[in-house]
Amino acid sequence: MKIKKRSKSFAVKLFVYIILIGMGFVYLYPILYMVVNSFLSASDLTDPSVTWVPTELCLSNFQTAFETLDFASSFAMSMVMSLIPAILQTAVTAVVAYGIARFQIPGKKLILVLVLVTFLLPSQVMLVPRYVLFDNYHLTDTVWAQFLPAILGQGLNSAIFIFVYYSYFASYPLVLDEAAQIDGAGKWKIFTRISMPMAKGATILSMLFSFVFYWNETYQSNTLWGGKIQTLPLKLQSFTLQYEAIYGEEAAGSISESVSLAGTLLSILPLLVLYLIFQRQFVESIESTGITGE
């Protein structure tokens, strides 16, 4: 009986492993392909016998891609345009969620519904009027087109972070606040000293995801910045054009796949490093928020 059970569980495990490895391979195939091929030299690329293992590690691809992307400056720009809005967005969504969760505000339900609506409203509906709005105040092509909505709680996917903070703040008893109030703490002090430390998980989630969302956002920024502010993904988007500008039109016609893939790899490298460091936090923060539909 026992042996039967064990062999059954072994079969189940094997089955699980096979499916996961198979799916994982399909999932990661483009990334593996990119990593391998970005190291291929021109001769390896045309050699049909070389598919997965390069005969030599060709680092010149990266050098070319590095220059084409203007890596140092666009990396710095990406950092500025992602980190600052992420911090602003996290701070503001926390304050706002605290306001909704722990004060007696008339129409609380309505506000929550409106927050949800801001998530459902698609960016393309907002694109035109926001562009006109910013253009009217001469804020296009400046960092403010990115920072202002973040400061006022209308940044990228702000609604998600408001809901996450809200669920944290609404989950612990009011008595705690009252105890602090008796000890003479004001609302702001209660917020910074008691509520925020308790919502650490939400803060981690909001920081990491805001950063990643802002880093990867190209749709609005492409239009709002009119090409004046060049982040890594935007440079990658115009990779061939950049290449042409540096190495001439003729070279660009035969731009090698390896260089292009090396550029792609370089542009996501910062995020991959971030993910390697914070992998647990990324995954566990979602699980711990309890967004499951109740």
Partner: peptide
Amino acid sequence: TLKGLLFLSPWLIGFLAFTLLPFIN
């Protein structure tokens, strides 16, 4: 309530300026 609205004010302003107004526009 007033204090709560104070906490909420950034979002309210932002909602009017960057969501409701563009929406109508």
